[in-house]
Amino acid sequence: MSVSLYYSARREQPLTEAETASVERVVTAHMASFPYGGEEECLYLYPPDSADEGEILAGSTKMPLDPGRLLPVIAGVLDSVTELRRAVKGARWRVHSDDLDVPWDETEGYALPGMRDPDLIAELGTL
């Protein structure tokens, strides 16, 4: 069984050229800084032609099965989605994993408790 993190943005106006360029920069920076090989656990945006009506961005990330990789992947993806939200103004965002919505904080962005706790990350790495 796999768990995924889902993210989407909705608004009436489509992305502007400047916003599209900003989105591309965020995705490129995420891929360049991603600590693990492959694309399975990375930030992944669905192709624009697959979007639902009113949806200007949407994507998902499959969470790793390796407990030692879980929190770094979550932190990296949520940091990137935070950057996307800040680059695309005026949209209604939803970030969630199954029934759990990830809260938004104007200062911190998207975050889950403990996702940057080095002791917890180390402990999960030993499982």
Rank of each mutant, 00 (worst) to 15 (best):
G109N: 08
P14T: 10
T107R: 15
L45R: 15
P118Q: 13
E123V: 04
L124P: 03
Y7D: 10
D98R: 08
M31Y: 13
D66T: 05
V3W: 02
E55C: 00
D49K: 06
V73Y: 11
S8F: 01
P48S: 07
P64K: 02
T107F: 09
G109D: 05
L78P: 12
D98H: 12
G114C: 07
P67L: 07
M115G: 10
M115A: 07
Y44G: 03
A9S: 08
Y46A: 13
E83L: 12
R94K: 13
S97W: 03
K89V: 04
R85P: 06
Y46P: 00
G90L: 03
G109P: 11
A32P: 03
Y110S: 06
V23D: 02
A18T: 13
A111P: 02
C42R: 15
A18P: 02
G109H: 11
V73H: 08
V23E: 02
L120F: 09
L70R: 10
L43Y: 03
D66S: 01
G90S: 05
R86H: 08
R85Q: 14
V23L: 11
F34Y: 15
Y6P: 00
E40K: 15
P72F: 14
L70F: 13
G68I: 01
E41G: 00
Q13T: 08
I56Y: 05
T61P: 05
D98C: 02
A21W: 03
S50V: 07
D98W: 10
G109M: 12
V73L: 09
A51S: 11
H96Y: 14
E83S: 14
R116S: 13
I74K: 08
L15P: 09
M115T: 05
G54N: 08
P14Q: 12
A58L: 00
W104Y: 13
S2H: 02
L112M: 03
E24D: 15
T107K: 15
D105T: 04
A29D: 14
G109I: 10
E108K: 10
A9V: 03
D101K: 13
R86W: 07
S33T: 15
M1S: 01
L65R: 13
R94P: 00
R94F: 00
P72G: 10
E24N: 05
R85K: 14
V88N: 05
E39C: 04
Q13D: 10
E40R: 15
E108I: 01
P48V: 01
W104S: 09
D119C: 10
E53S: 08
V95L: 07
E123H: 14
V26A: 10
S50G: 00
D119T: 10
A58H: 08
